[in-house]
Design a protein around this nucleic acid. Structure first.
Length: 613
RNA sequence: GGCCCCGUAGCUCAACUGGAUAGAGCAGCUGACUUCUAAUCAGCAGGUUUCAGGUUCGAGUCCUGACGGGGUCACCA
């Protein structure tokens, strides 16, 4: 049994024996002792003071004495204002280190039967991936790693939003102005090429729209439809969508393209598939650069029709209802939401329709009890609605659905807007952080003897380590500020700071080789060593918490604290030239374990360790 | 306007889910490399946790209200 549970039980027992006060041992609150106080763990006594009508000191003494007698590994206790601090003996901590240092993959949980599906990235197929995608990709990847470590069977997935009006804009634009340009002919990466024509489309549309605004019919429209005090500019800005749908010539081309696609027109399908493949090649290169992959990619074009079957099913049992115009709706007012359309009057799918169908397909294929959607918080309402519908339909997996909602990324210059050209491309960013790592390493000169490939691999790991840690250290739910300069920082609370701790450890073992055999069970710990051992013991808890709270930032904080404590110890004590042989052997074993746990915990964030830097 | 989220040091973030004197990093100022890698360590300075009430032995954390920021309210995805 783990020692904290043991303490809880003994506290409860002590209260019962000495004061006839019956307390559930699970409710006994134990925290880590604050750094300024003596002790390792703290029992909070306040809840019992009133019940037993004793002073905090008397109560603390009784329980403390009981703990010291009944738990062999507790060496001492003290009481400060209602807090009972207990200390572990050195022998206990040394023994614990000895045992975890011998576990092959320390932190691994026993295999569970449950399967978890994690969906992330899920881009549109009409442009390159950008900084916003990087957050979902890193979060999704990290959650997958954390679940695996926690013993779950994990299935990583992505849904490619490969159909609809957006890709048709790129297609129309390419057909009109592209002159047959391809990634091969132009040397432009596929996703950027398709993105280029998407932007090109918007330029032409804007130009056409501006010319139209000068026409008589447009000014008549403004006079008759504009609200009081609305400026011409504001009015036409709001009207752009309607213009696209009702007046635009190239808008008409796009809509015809979409209809042809839906009719299965061969030429259109061929173009569609060609341009999508360009994008997939581009996206796959970006995923590979980031070191992530998926078990299966679902394509919206293949699943969107399936949603209609679900609609029919719900219509039959009156979960949904039909309006006079033929559109189909769901009423969620009983759970505090609104009425929501789920199938258009012309019988075609909306966004929700697809997600209903996709969820069913995926459950039928994978039977995952948990399904985590890593999607931005602007879609909070959408997912509330989706999950409620699944419950109403009586889906067995409905309660396992979870929206891991993450906040938007802001830049120091404001919000990212593709139209205003303030988007940060994922590829550019990755290249930049690696370049920054290269510069830093060149100055230090530690890796200059290595061959070029080995050096490049180190720069890649350091650069990506900086970027990934910078993003994952923030609680996912929070909106975050992305400062390009800070994202490539390599000092302080950063990925490279943690990698550096690992590199120092690797360096020791390059010089030494294997750890000599020696019994260190009676070793007396230095303060810095004690802190490290206590942190190491927490690792499994951190994994469990990160999994339960959907929060990789907990792992990031843990890694940082562990690295910080290691750097402190490295500074305070000598390792290879320790005072005694016992101290040396103990410290080596400690370093080895710290190195393993640092590597393992950064792996949960998708960060790799360099051997040198 | 309705609903949802957020507000902590100059800046970027923590705070074990209601516990002790709110902690880190960056930026600023000091100091430490002939030593296992200084991408490091030690120190100084920086706070009325947006504001006003309330609940509690105890509130950054829970409740009410105000102020400020963001999101969302499409037969777009």
């Amino acid at each position: 049994m783990d020692i904290l549970t043991k303490i809880q039980e003994e506290v409860a027992k002590s209260l019962l024996v000495h004061y006839e006060c019956d307390v559930d041992s699970d409710t006994v609150l134990i925290n880590q002792t604050k750094a300024d106080f003596e002790g390792d763990y703290t029992v909070v006594l306040f809840p019992y003071i009133k019940k037993v009508k004793r002073s905090p000191d008397e109560l603390g003494n009784t329980i403390g004495t009981h703990l010291k007698e009944s738990v062999a590994d507790i060496s001492d206790f003290n009481i400060v204002k209602g807090f009972l601090n207990v200390s572990f003996s050195d022998q206990y901590l040394v023994k614990q280190l000895d045992s975890i240092s011998q576990i092959e993959n320390y932190g691994d949980f026993p295999k569970r039967s449950e399967k978890v599906m994690v969906e992330f990235s899920s881009p549109n197929t009409n442009k390159p991936l950008h900084l916003g995608h990087i957050r979902t990709i890193l979060l999704g990847w990290s959650m997958s790693k954390i679940y695996e470590k926690a013993g779950y069977d994990v299935f990583k997935t992505c849904i490619a939003n490969d159909r609809g009006i957006a890709i048709c804009k790129s297609m129309t634009s390419w057909k009109n102005y592209g002159n047959g340009e391809t990634p091969e002919s132009s040397g432009i990466k596929g996703d950027f090429l398709v993105g280029k024509y998407y932007v090109e489309f918007d330029k032409h549309l804007t130009k056409e729209y501006q010319e139209w605004q000068a026409s008589e019919s447009a000014s008549n429209l403004f006079k008759s439809k504009a609200k009081d005090e609305q400026t011409e500019e504001a009015f036409f800005k709001a009207y752009k969508n309607t213009y696209f749908n009702e007046h635009s010539a190239i808008g008409k081309q796009v809509k015809e393209m979409l209809l042809k696609w839906e009719d299965g027109d061969e030429e259109t399908k061929a173009l569609w598939s060609q341009m999508n493949n360009w994008v997939y090649d581009g996206h796959n290169a970006t995923y590979a650069n980031l070191g992530v992959s998926f078990d299966k990619i679902y394509y919206e074009s293949e699943t969107y029709l399936k949603g209609k079957d679900v609609i029919l099913e719900g219509l039959k049992d009156n979960t949904f209802y039909k309006e006079k115009d033929g559109s189909i709706w769901v009423d969620l007012e009983d759970v505090g939401l609104d009425k929501k359309i789920i199938l258009r009057s012309d019988g075609t799918s909306v966004y929700l329709t697809q997600d209903l169908g996709t969820a069913d397909i995926r459950y039928a294929e994978q039977a995952a009890e948990k399904m985590v959607y890593v999607v931005g918080d602007e879609q909070d309402y959408h997912f509330k609605v989706l999950f409620e519908i699944m419950k109403k339909l009586g889906r067995s997996y409905a309660n396992g659905l979870y929206h891991l909602s993450y906040g938007m990324i802001d830049l120091p210059t404001g919000k990212m807007k593709s139209r205003e050209g303030t988007v940060v491309d994922a590829d550019d960013l990755v290249e930049e952080v690696i370049e920054e790592a290269r510069k830093g390493a060149k100055e230090r000169g530690e890796v200059s003897q290595l061959d070029k490939d080995a050096q490049d691999e180190i720069f890649r790991r350091i650069g990506l380590g900086a970027l990934k840690f910078y993003i994952l250290k923030v609680n996912p739910k929070k909106r975050m500020m992305f400062n390009p300069q800070e994202s490539v920082d390599m000092q302080g609370q950063t990925g490279p700071y943690i990698q550096n701790a690992f590199v120092r450890i690797s360096s020791i073992f390059r010089k030494l080789g294997d750890i000599p055999e020696l019994d260190f069970s009676a070793y007396a710990l230095e303060p810095a060593e004690k802190e490290l051992v206590k942190s190491l013991l927490q690792y499994p808890q951190v994994i469990e918490q990160a999994a339960n709270n959907y929060d990789p930032s907990l792992v990031a904080s843990f890694s940082y604290v562990l690295a910080k404590q290691f750097h402190k110890m490295y500074h305070d004590v000598r390792i290879l030239s320790a005072e005694t042989e016992v101290a040396k052997v103990f410290r080596l074993r400690l370093c080895k374990t710290v190195g393993n746990v640092l590597e393992s915990s950064l792996n949960l964030l998708g960060i790799e360790m360099p051997e040198r830097m």
